[in-house]
Design a protein around this nucleic acid. Sequence first.
DNA 1: TTAAAACAGGACAAAAATATCTTTTTTATA
DNA 2: TATAAAAAAGATATTTTTGTCCTGTTTTAA
Lengths: 155, 155
Amino acid sequence: MLSNACQYAIRSILYLGMRSDEEHKIGVKVISKELEVPQPFLAKLLQQLNKSNLVTSTKGPYGGFYLSETNKQHTVWDIVSLIDGNEKFNQCFLGLSKCGDDNPCPVHFTVSAFKQKLFQDFKEKTIAEFVEEIKLKGRYISLKSFEILKPDSDS
Amino acid sequence: MLSNACQYAIRSILYLGMRSDEEHKIGVKVISKELEVPQPFLAKLLQQLNKSNLVTSTKGPYGGFYLSETNKQHTVWDIVSLIDGNEKFNQCFLGLSKCGDDNPCPVHFTVSAFKQKLFQDFKEKTIAEFVEEIKLKGRYISLKSFEILKPDSDS
DNA sequence: TTAAAACAGGACAAAAATATCTTTTTTATA
DNA sequence: TATAAAAAAGATATTTTTGTCCTGTTTTAA
């Protein structure tokens, strides 16, 4: 459903939300290794996210990426609509242009209920809230999964 | 989520399920026009579906495609797994390889509930049942949508 | 002030998905 | 039997997505 690029973007931002702040910036190299995402591709992506004010970067030694407080007030939906476009959650599962509540395809109601719920999650919760939730549940983002680690194993 | 090819395939098969039988075969030209799908692309697809016994075809004048009774005993899932592969409903929404019930990504439960429901629909209902359901609701497949037509407007 | 670290930007490359074209085979029927 | 209609098959083309490479710019700190 989401493009690779978009998945990478969401994962990166959640990762940065968990691990970074203005005093602890993280370089592309580290992020790409941790999330198992191709480095140059991710670099481009982060560039784009930076331009749209979804992440913050600084150059030079000790530079890298992090989420500012402003960045964290954005939503996952902001990421999706930037990378995959506004219509991502607005398309018929079977590709019918005229599918809708009044003229539903055979899976319309199943699909639209799901999309609505997810859309709400993505649109209503800020990145900060998402991150908070993950932290409360004791999970940290690393590698390609949200692995459960002991909180104090964090560096 | 589903590829174009897969959406085209599902739509074609439901369309054939509604409109065709051994005495009323339908040519690629007609199907592609009705479903607004590129004709040569669809031809290839139907070829593939035919090889996998999901549709039946005959060559020559008055030839075309239709669903035999055997064809109709297949499921939508058979189409999906043929075109988009077996893992389509088995992948993390955020692309995490280790995401699962015991190690869920932030949207895991929302997404997996949906996928299960859809998967069930696709796996348990035969094409025949899907078609029956559409007919009962008074809908016919045409153009790019499942439009509601008066039953007797059918030729 | 200079070297190195890190992101920025632009061009390029590869792979996958989508789409097209041409020729061959089959078949009904005139 | 010849002809035309239609799918099958294979080759090719286009577009999109994904991924890479190289050079430039900024920044830090020795």
